[in-house]
């Protein structure tokens, strides 16, 4: 084949391709535009919600907000959500206390000790559990706790949040453990470490940063949850002095005060919403940053 032959063929090919792209070029351009527009559409709510929460909530975040009890209906810009903040912390704490050991040990079984079809089914059940509506966690704990103890309480609320966190904790821990290379397990086992020692002294510490990140995210998500608390912890206008009495939380405060016609309470609801968003956003961003420097 001569050089000119080649060139004419190449030209012809190039023209053919150019013809094609000039036609369907619009087709491609159109769909790129549509996809880009949808992406924009997906991002607008985030910006709007965040902007409004900051805009409406920030000005109300004064010292009183963090230190005082919720205001009476007609008191403009007095009081705060101190009891709700404490309630949220305590209930999230109880939830974590219950679900973290439970979930981490379950994940250790799935990742380290189990064989065959059993772990598959348990993982399946875990994933299905994480899809159970959070309000049903509340219904469940209501039947289990509130009816038996005869009172709405921080303990019941904490347990409801714990059930909610459980599948997330199992899944993130399971995934974190599986990232640890099996050679590291061999090293420990090969030295005559028992299963217990291998898991406790080598595998769990190696996976700890990833597990901690997952746990933090789970806890932060739980802090923003409302539905499981509605009829387990209920709400309270007063300071908490027993774990077995109705307990305020930030999220239920937002729910209650957003629906009343009193401006003072509404403004406090926005401020509490800002705190909730702040907790979740901050932990999400920090965990994203933390996962960048993992051991494995």
């Amino acid at each position: 084949m001569t050089a000119t032959d080649y060139r004419t063929r190449a030209d012809r090919a190039r023209r053919a391709i150019a013809d094609q792209t000039s036609g369907p070029g619009y087709f491609d351009l159109f769909w790129t535009g549509v996809a880009g527009f949808f992406t924009l559409l997906a991002l607008i709510p985030l910006v709007l919600v965040l902007a409004y929460v900051v805009f409406r909530g920030f000005s109300r975040l004064n010292w009183a907000a963090f230190t005082q009890l919720p205001p009476p209906p007609l008191a403009p810009d007095q009081g705060g959500f101190a009891n709700a903040l404490i309630g949220t912390l305590i209930m999230v704490g109880i939830g974590a206390l219950v679900s973290v050991p439970f979930g981490v040990l379950a994940a250790v079984y799935l990742s380290e000790f189990s064989q065959g079809q059993v772990p598959r089914w348990i993982r399946f059940a875990t994933n299905v559990l994480s899809g159970v509506p959070s309000i049903l966690m509340g219904v469940f704990i209501y039947g289990l706790f509130v009816i038996t103890t005869g009172t709405y309480s921080a303990v019941a609320g904490g347990f409801a949040l714990g059930v909610l966190m459980l599948p997330i904790i199992v899944r993130t821990t399971d995934e974190s453990l599986q990232i640890v290379p099996k050679q590291v397990r061999w090293a420990a086992i090969g030295m005559g470490a028992s299963k217990f020692q291998t898991v406790l002294r080598v595998v769990l510490p190696a996976a700890l940063p990833a597990i901690a990140t997952g746990l933090t995210l789970a806890v932060a998500r739980a802090a923003g949850e409302t539905a499981p608390l509605l009829f387990t912890a209920l709400f309270s206008q007063y300071w908490l002095d027993s774990l077995l009495q109705p307990t305020a939380s930030l999220s239920v405060l937002v729910y209650n005060f957003a629906r009343v016609p009193y401006e003072g309470q509404q403004r406090l609801a926005w401020a509490a919403a800002l705190i909730l968003v702040g907790i979740v956003m901050l932990t999400s961003i920090l965990s994203r940053w933390a996962t960048r420097k993992q051991i494995y």
């Binding site: 290379p181 590291v184 061999w186 090293a187 510490p205």
Partner: peptide, 12 residues
């Protein structure tokens, strides 16, 4: 005792 193909120090 055993030494493996890939060096496998513990992350400690």
């Amino acid at each position: 005792g055993m030494v493996f193909q890939q060096p496998n120090p513990f992350p400690k």
